[in-house]
Write a protein that binds this DNA or RNA. Sequence first.
RNA 1: CGGGGUGUAGCGCAGUCGGCCAGCGCGCCGCGUUUGGGACGCGGAGGUCGGCGGUUCAAGUCCGCCCACCCCGACCA
Length: 478
Amino acid sequence: MDEKKLTPKSENYSDWYNQLVQRAELADYAPVRGCMVVRPYGWSLWENIQAALDSRFKATGHKNAAFPLFIPMSFLEKEKEHVEGFSPELAVVTIGGGSELEEPLIVRPTSETIIGYMYSKWIQSYRDLPVLINQWGNVVRWEMRTRLFLRTLEFYWQEGHTAHATAEEAEEETLRMLDIYTDFAVNEAAVPVIPGRKSESEKFAGAVRSYTIEGMMGDTKALQAGTSHNLGQNFAKAFEIQYLDQNNTLQHCWTTSWGLSTRFIGAIIMTHGDDQGLILPPRLAPTQVVIVPIFRKEEEQQAVMAAVDKVKAQLSEFRVEIDDRMEVTPGFKFNEWELKGVPLRLEIGPKDVAKNSVALARRDIPGRDGKSFVPQDGIAETVGNMLDTIQADMLAKATQFRDEHIFEPKDYDEFKEIVKNDGWCYVWWKPNAANEAQIKEDTKATLRCIPMDQPGGKGKCIFSGEEATEKAYFARAY
RNA sequence: CGGGGUGUAGCGCAGUCGGCCAGCGCGCCGCGUUUGGGACGCGGAGGUCGGCGGUUCAAGUCCGCCCACCCCGACCA
């Protein structure tokens, strides 16, 4: 096996993913099982994700804050479903400063409880509402099986927590944030996601309703890429988050929470990557354009580098890197930047100096087909247009792939076949937790979501045959 | 926690029946020639053979215990 090449996706998707993450220098394994180190290239991608989300949060009135990593154990126990959901995966601190603690502290698996506690202190009146706070941070969940980015013991994310005066407002907020996630995924990451509602058995521990954006990965498995929860009054009652309304009546608040994590990097990798490596959407790519100078002799070098500097100067609005390393050949650089998924490569050599041109190579279209030669004059506009085209084409390609792998089986036997080999099933569904569990046992597929966009009308439930009014997606998932 | 596997240079691996100085490829360092799709030559650096104990004149190699990691299952953003 050629050590220079990645394991092809078709041969072993899991190996392909693991090798890609490490060789593209996104992340590496930490000395603790299940933990990862996010390397500068991976973190830079995360920073661009953060910036895209953060501006959307701010634009809808949210403010950032920071809550502690440690939470008293007793806090978690105040909400019944919440504690049942998270207890098995808690990291617990029992010793501090060399002596046993009076009350164990948990390392936050999520912050509903400690934020709820604070909200109960901060909120007195309807005039204090709504409270719209987001936090960027890390959380710990002691998972059994881990994968880089997709499931690690510690991960980075944002968690928004809001409190409202009415159930309607809370639901509006929950859906507003789901829309923001959808907009971000589609328009920034070129990841076509399906927004929808989680079933009772798949919803967040402690939520009234959970919403999700579901993406299809390159192996057709589903990935939950972001979630938004309407918590009803569950946490408000557990933590006594109360306010006096206009009629001087004490009311419990209605709260929400919503999160998107470094897992999304896994979604980008598995939505767009190919056998050459990563393909990053231009809007999020740490480096949008790499310039590779090509020359043999010293006099060529001078002319080429002068042209490179001139071109680079015109591209100040983009994230551009010049790869002027002397110790590796251009061919090596091409492969390396393709591995790292840089959307656009500019080659400038003696021929380009002579013709006042540059060679453009699109990462999303490998080989000759993606290569073109353009004038150096007006290069900023050319590059800008090309990056927009790449962004749009990546979304179109991923959307097409997804749609080609969604099927509408006519009966449960066909459903089983599709879910095993081909992709997702889009079917009429009459809600029933036992039936859902049975499907999972039969096929390993779970109910990914009941999409917001419903066809209307009614049909026969794929499993029970009963009359159903909604359609749902089922798939194997990460 | 159950099943399977692997620990030898930074990475990937070989090491026969226990035997002298532990080896190969890639990478790394130096010099020179190269450079439009993963360059080549020459020289060099780099090892508690996962750990502890045992058998033996002699252990990377045989035995026992322990540890770590990976893959497959039960839990999950």
